[in-house]
């Protein structure tokens, strides 16, 4: 048993395929997750996100390919890799026979860690559960149960945390609190892999994003790269004199539209074009040179959700949306 950890990839997934009969739940996936990053794995329902996470964490066995965590093989060295990993699954669960504190103490024992009162209190405090420490888990609200599951996953201080839809059924305030703790964890060096349906959260938090569909990993990139490459920007200019149509006709070489009589919208792409902004420069130069009075300028860009949809749509067009 030896580690092949080279410091670049905390998780290395190579050629992983998981079949259920004829169905390939994940199909030839190669992926690297870097130490200390927040990696968002995005995909529609049934895309293979949970299956991939299951293969890495040991929930699912019998897959083809290789997965290493910190250089240790998740099959051969499972006793090591599973201690390095914390998992918050999608499904809510609770231990009806025990109170919150006992649940966390048992959880530490499951990873061979001696539970200390300080560690339990620290976690409960961070997730606003300290007042419920002696309450039976059965009587916790859904949000509290979700937070307790995160506490459980963190009890043995994993270096890699998987959050599978952690904010499902959690109210807005708690979601913010939770994400703030995730950022705090990242700041302390924990690597985080998350799946979420709230793409605006992934957009805010993730360093890198992987988009998975029908078991295939379609794209993996830094969030900014993805948004620059695949996203579009627009610039709305509100004109004082209501000449929107005139400018659209005059600047037909630009991707310009009249939103109403007073407002024009310039669409321009991402990537190098986005950074150099020649279209913006051209538009502004024409407006200023033409003596157009400008009331207001407002910029906007594609959201991660729009990019996500674009990638999925392109994949569906390329490969069809049929059965796997």
């Amino acid at each position: 048993m030896s580690s092949r950890f080279d410091g670049d990839a905390l998780v290395r997934v190579e050629g992983v395929t998981k079949r259920y009969g004829e169905l390939k739940a994940v199909d030839q996936i190669d992926l690297e997750i870097r130490p200390g990053e927040i990696f968002a794995l995005l995909g529609p329902n049934g895309a293979g996100k949970t299956t991939l996470i299951g293969c890495i964490t040991g929930l699912i066995s019998g897959f083809e390919g290789e997965i290493d965590v910190a250089g240790f093989d998740v099959v051969d060295d499972y006793r090591i890799t599973r201690r390095l990993v914390g998992l918050v699954p999608q499904e809510l669960n609770y231990d009806a026979f025990f109170n919150v504190r006992q649940v966390l103490e048992f959880q530490a024992g499951y990873f061979g860690v001696r539970p200390t009162r300080e560690r339990v209190d620290e976690l409960l405090d961070q997730f606003s559960l300290l007042e419920k420490a002696e309450a039976n888990t059965r009587w916790l609200s859904g949000g509290m149960k979700r937070r307790l599951m995160i506490c459980k996953a963190l009890m043995h201080e994993p270096i890699l945390l998987f959050l599978d839809e952690p904010t499902a059924g959690v109210d807005v305030d708690l979601r913010d609190e939770l994400w703030s703790y995730v950022e705090d964890l990242r700041a302390r060096g924990t690597t985080i892999v998350l799946t979420t349906h709230y793409l605006e959260e992934a957009e805010k938090l993730a360093d890198r994003v992987g988009i998975i569909n029908q078991g295939r990993l379609l794209r993996v990139d830094a969030r900014e790269t993805l948004m620059d490459d695949l996203g579009h920007r627009h610039l709305d200019v509100e004109l004082r004199d209501g000449n929107a149509q005139k400018w659209v006709a005059r600047l037909s070489h630009l991707e310009l539209e009249a939103v109403d009589a007073h407002r024009i919208r310039l669409h321009y792409g991402g990537g190098a074009e986005c950074r150099d902004r020649p279209a913006v420069d051209q538009l502004m130069k024409h407006l200023v040179d033409g003596g157009e009075g400008i009331e207001e300028i407002e910029g906007g860009r594609s959201s991660l959700e729009e990019i996500f949809r674009t990638v999925l749509q392109e994949d569906t067009e390329r490969n069809g949306g049929g059965e796997r």
């Binding site: 299951g54 040991g58 599973r82 699954p89 499904e91 669960n93 499951y110």
Partner: peptide, 13 residues
């Protein structure tokens, strides 16, 4: 039934 079997079997044991 409690959705904990996977978690149980993914412990380092």
């Amino acid at each position: 039934e409690r959705n904990t079997l996977g978690l149980l079997l993914s412990l380092p044991a």
